[in-house]
Design a protein around this nucleic acid. Structure first.
Length: 806
RNA sequence: GCCCGGGUGGCGGAACGGUAGACGCGAGGGGCUUAAACCCCCUUGAGCCGAAUGCGGCUCGUGUGGGUUCGAAACCCACCCCGGGCACCA
């Protein structure tokens, strides 16, 4: 009987599904384990990245199930979004039918991998019974003042013809199509994530099982700065506010800078002697993208002709326009303190502006701006104080004078969720000439996405051209009104979908809070590192909102986060555009899903990028062939008492159980597989040397149990062939016997001056004295030691003796 | 510029401060076969020595240079290179 992966794999996939092995309900009698792989965009075909992700996820589902956990592992589809719409524009296929075709192809492929989910809970964000609750959530946020519409300069992608969230702009380019992003003033919908900035930042501390770099990235993204905002008077005109983290250095302010877009600029330069120059500078700044501005490096600017009054010293200082000050951060205006800020230093030196140090640098200081702590100087009533004291003092002074107050600034902006695209969840709001913005009543949800003919974006949502959709009546006054035509960012869907898995068919509520109360938080969340700030930050935010609404019992959704590395080939990420893809479906046919799964587990540390080896799957296939032969073939047993060989192979098997268990718990699959290979190799040798039935049966039993979460199809088939009636997936994960796992003999290495000179087999229980005596007694060691004085002997029995000689 | 990772055979990678290179891939040799594939066995970091056929031994070797230690791929210092993240954020 040969190993026919095709029939075995389809047989077991069918059985797992029809016997509902991985369908679960809340069960208070068992510990729960909520295991989620980030739900995929239905691109139409799975790639090796999916295989890696789902292999890890499925291994964990099966392993934890065997350990007695009530494991929920659901699957769904992030099925709204631009690719489906762009495909519709290119090929004329409706996004809905296109998406649904791709979902059915992909879910068939995921099943072929043998990755098991509770398909009963499958969700897809493009379905009305899902996006209805997007809209419901939007309205809840609106009622809480957490959703608002505002005119703001936004990131506009000229190719996709839609706005982008800050998080979707990478190096000034659209994250989807790499088109340079431009700024545009538009009225858009925002979620007020900044209200949660402190909580999102503080709770990062609790995420101890998250990768450190993801936590750092989120911390940087939120970008909290503590300081003060105060007002600066302009000679003969208005005043303006500045934010600074160094109010203690205000005596050293020798100029001010406004961003070119600052609203006060126009009135300051109008009629000034530098007006022409200033207007040219502003126009040039507008033409440039942010990347170009940064690329220049050199600080440039123009004097406005106006002067500001330093509020503490009364000094008159010039006001400049310079593009190194950004309108999008703080107040768009700064006090410039060249003595303590390197950028200001560079600007001051270039334009011949005074520099006053207000912090005493060390005597040997030969740098430019001095940023570290020191005694305050040249600062009247702050003199002699250190930075902390000086900050307290000056902020108190500003509050007394009513010109300033302590402030916290964030780099994080509110989350822009409007998209001028078709394939998304419509924003459930109505514009009425009489009542203004009116929310659609929750009973009226969902606001259905209508079928339309033309998806080509023309600067506004394609929905805007559909009169039947747009024209409606006002829920408040019954007068004529128009609908919002923007749709929501798909990251809104993905920020709460994992709650819906707990109660996916609920038609009267987003979910019954009792259900996620059992399952949440997600014990293990697995996905790509590319979501480090986007999805993972939004999801944390929405979870906190749900918590505040009383719908979630947890404030943090993901206890453990695992981010897998990419699969590369020839040094580049495997991708269609680079033409270096290896289709998993081909490998299902040629080698089988089990071989492919094992290869992904074996290829390297799960967090690291891994290079695809075209022959790698051959290797894991060979291993499975050996296992097959070993466990399914006829074995000539010898009827005899237990011997040394039997105890040895059982010892290996139990040590393997220990190692594999520890490795899985530490996500070190790449060392668990070799342990199984070694066991199989030793078992083969054992069998060839005259096995005893009881020993053989036990070793094979342990091996199949361990193989079950990794290569489930073949393991199940062999389990059944060997006469077991109950399915392998339902067995307990094996425990190892410390007694059996302990080795009797071990190789002790003997070093002379730290260099290995001999090895000797010793009993594990050897005493230090015996070890030293044995080591010194070895002929080879005598040869090294003779004629030298032994200065010291280091004994680490039973593994090592090191003899230190002259 | 700042903050994280990481540099180990031909390749992917192993290695509680204690036998560097597990396991796998590839390569070379041999067996089986009419032949090939599959499969099985042996060899496989570099250099060298003694024997004489598969035996034994030595030196070097984990990016570079120093250090700590009986002992360093691992710890410390400096530097080089690669990957990622952040970046006029006041």
């Amino acid at each position: 009987m040969s190993y026919d992966h095709k029939s075995i794999e389809s047989k077991w996939q069918e059985r797992w599904e029809t016997e509902k092995v991985f369908q679960v309900t809340e069960d208070a009698s068992k510990p729960k384990f909520y295991n989620v792989c980030m739900y995929p965009y239905p691109s139409g075909a799975i790639h090796q990245g999916h295989v890696r992700n789902y292999t890890y996820g499925d291994l964990l589902t099966r392993y934890k199930t065997m350990q007695g956990y009530n494991v929920l592992s659901p699957m769904g589809w992030d099925s709204f979004g631009l690719p489906a719409e762009n495909a519709a524009i290119d090929s004329g296929i409706h996004p809905k039918s296109n998406t649904e075709n791709q979902i059915s192809t992909m879910s068939a492929q995921i099943r072929q991998l043998g990755s098991m989910y509770d398909w009963n809970r499958e969700i897809a964000s493009h379905q009305p019974d899902f996006y209805r609750w997007d809209q419901w959530l939007f309205l809840e946020l609106y009622e809480r003042g957490l959703a608002y519409k505002a005119e703001a300069p936004v990131n506009w992608c000229p190719k996709d013809q839609t706005v982008l969230a800050n998080e979707q702009v990478i190096d000034g380019l659209c994250e989807r199509c790499d088109t340079p992003v431009v700024k545009k003033n538009l009225a858009q919908w925002f979620f007020k994530i900044t209200d949660y900035a402190d909580r999102l930042l503080d709770d990062i501390e609790e995420l101890e099982h998250w990768p450190a770099r993801v936590r750092t990235m989120q911390r940087n993204w939120i970008g909290r700065s503590v300081g003060a905002t105060f007002s600066i008077d302009i000679e003969g005109a208005d005043s303006f506010d500045v934010f600074t983290t160094r109010p203690d250095t205000v005596f050293g302010m020798t100029f001010c800078v406004l961003a070119p877009e600052h609203p006060l600029v126009e009135s300051l330069i109008d009629g000034s002697e530098t007006e022409t120059e200033a207007r040219e500078y502003i126009a040039a700044a507008q033409r440039q993208s942010e990347i170009e501005r940064m690329a220049e490096g050199d600080k440039t600017g123009v004097f406005t002709g106006a002067f500001a009054i330093n509020p503490v010293s009364g000094a008159e200082v010039p006001i400049y326009i310079a593009d190194y000050v950004l309108m999008g951060y703080g107040t768009g205006a700064i006090m410039a303190v060249p003595g303590q800020d390197q950028r200001d230093w560079e600007f001051a030196t270039k334009y011949g502006i005074d520099i006053i140090r207000t912090v005493q640098p060390p005597d040997d200081w030969d740098g430019e701006a001095y940023l570290d702590d020191g005694l305050t100087i040249n600062s009247d009533f702050l003199n002699g104080l250190n930075q902390i004291e000086a900050k307290k003092r000056i902020i108190a002074w500003m509050e007394e004078e009513a010109i300033g107050k302590p402030t916290v600034q964030y780099r994080l902006h509110d989350w822009l969720i409007s998209r001028q695209r078709y394939w998304g969840s419509p924003i459930p709001m109505v514009n009425c000439d009489h009542c203004g913005l009116v929310p659609v009543p929750k009973e009226g949800l969902p606001v259905l996405l209508p079928d339309i003919e033309d998806y080509v974006p023309k600067g506004k949502s394609p929905l805007a051209a559909d009169d039947d959709f747009v024209n409606t009546t006002c829920p408040s006054c019954d007068g004529p009104a128009t609908r919002e035509t923007d749709t929501m960012d798909t990251f809104v869907d993905s920020s709460w979908y994992y709650f819906r898995y707990a109660d996916p068919h609920n038609s009267t509520a987003i979910f019954d809070p009792a259900k996620p109360a059992y399952w949440m938080p997600i014990d293990q969340y697995i996905g790509g590192i590319e979501h480090a700030v986007l999805h993972l930050l939004y999801a944390r935010f929405i979870t906190k909102v749900l918590f505040d609404m009383g719908l979630s019992t947890v404030e943090e959704p993901f206890t453990r986060l695992f981010t897998q590395g990419m699969i590369t080939m020839d040094g580049a990420k495997m991708s269609k555009s680079k033409g270096n893809v290896v289709d998993p479906v081909d490998l299902f046919a040629s080698h089988g899903a089990d071989s492919l799964r094992l290869f992904h587990l074996f290829i390297g540390p799960p967090t690291d990028d891994a290079a695809w080896n075209p022959n790698g799957v051959d290797g894991t296939r060979r291993f499975l062939e050996r296992v097959w032969k070993l466990a399914s073939g006829d074995v000539a047993f010898i009827d005899r008492d237990e011997s040394e060989a039997d105890r040895e192979i059982l010892g290996t098997a139990h040590r393997t159980v220990r190692k594999v268990t520890e490795d899985i718990d530490r996500f070190r699959f790449n060392t668990a597989i070799p342990a199984l290979m070694i066991l199989a190799n030793e078992l083969a040798e054992y069998v060839s040397e005259g096995p005893r039935q009881e020993t053989y049966d036990e070793a094979i039993r342990l091996m199949l149990l361990m193989l079950s979460p990794m290569a489930p199809h073949i393991a199940h088939e062999l389990w059944e062939i060997r006469g077991n009636e109950e399915m392998l997936a339902l067995q307990d994960w094996p425990a190892w016997d410390e007694q059996l796992a302990r080795e009797e003999m071990v190789t002790m290495i003997v070093q002379v001056n730290g260099k290995v000179r001999d090895r000797v087999e010793v009993a594990t229980g050897i005493t230090p004295e015996e070890a030293e005596e044995q080591a010194l007694g070895l002929d080879k060691i005598q040869g090294w030691v003779d004629g030298h004085e032994v200065r010291k002997v280091i004994v680490r029995q039973p593994n090592l003796v090191n003899i230190v000689i002259e």
